[in-house]
Design a protein around this nucleic acid. Structure first.
Lengths: 127, 127
DNA sequence: ATTGTTGCAAAAATTTTGCATTATC
DNA sequence: GATAATGCAAAATTTTTGCAACAAT
């Protein structure tokens, strides 16, 4: 019956996503692995990321310049997206008020996404 | 010098966005106007939405199935996105705690985005 | 008249998919 | 050996852009 094979490529893709805090795009993961595994296909990266999202191993964080960016850290936490350099920062706050439920009556909240947009300190200090 | 002509088409596009609470995609705006203005071009809708975003007349809310969804209501408020039907709901909370600043030191926050993902009451009651 | 805006269609760019091949169990 | 995963390339989407025609001031 419908089992699932956890291939080496799949494991590599997941590891790469889990090990970085860069909130990568599919292409970023592909480029990174392509260096060591030249026979990797971009389609495979997309297919696996879709799978990981379904299984909750990975979450979608934001979309920057048309590219979806994902996060291997699925603990609920906020993000800061720099409009200038496109970097995405994690924000782990002590009080997890971002885990709040949607206040609309009769709605089921699966996930709460709190994202700040602005300029990061690196970009501010660069000028 | 670089003035700007506020054409009829531009006004129509902006009005359409401001008048709906459906958090439309560019294509939605295009389809809606196309009925009455058959010589409207999708490129024009995209160009004007890009302009409106720059000028702060419109904000980007989320990305659903690869399509950017925008909001003509630029007052800071939260949203609920239904994973099942793709509807986007506005949430105007009494305490505007979502207008909080990013807690990272030395970062400039322009905008705070709070979005809940889950199933809306319509989809829950439908089954 | 000058400058900005649009329509159209082509081009970019991201993401998905079909199918033969390969890997995993 | 049966089933699942991959590579490759083509296809489907969304979004952007070049340019001649058009509209606004």
């Amino acid at each position: 019956m419908g089992g699932r094979n956890f291939s080496k490529k799949r494991q590599l893709i997941l590891d790469t996503i889990k090990e970085t805090d860069s909130h990568p795009s599919a292409r970023w993961v592909y480029e990174k692995l392509k260096a060591d595994f030249p026979d990797l296909s971009l389609g495979t990266v997309y297919r696996n990321i879709a799978l990981f999202k379904e299984e909750g191993l990975v979450i979608s964080v934001t979309n920057i310049d048309g590219e979806e960016r994902i996060d291997g850290n699925t603990h609920e936490h906020a993000h800061f997206v720099c409009k200038e350099c496109g970097c995405v920062y994690d924000i782990f706050s002590s009080n997890d008020d971002n885990a709040a439920q949607c206040p609309l009556a009769g709605f089921e909240t699966d996930r709460t996404v709190l994202t700040y947009y602005g300029r990061c300190s690196d970009c501010i200090n660069r000028e």
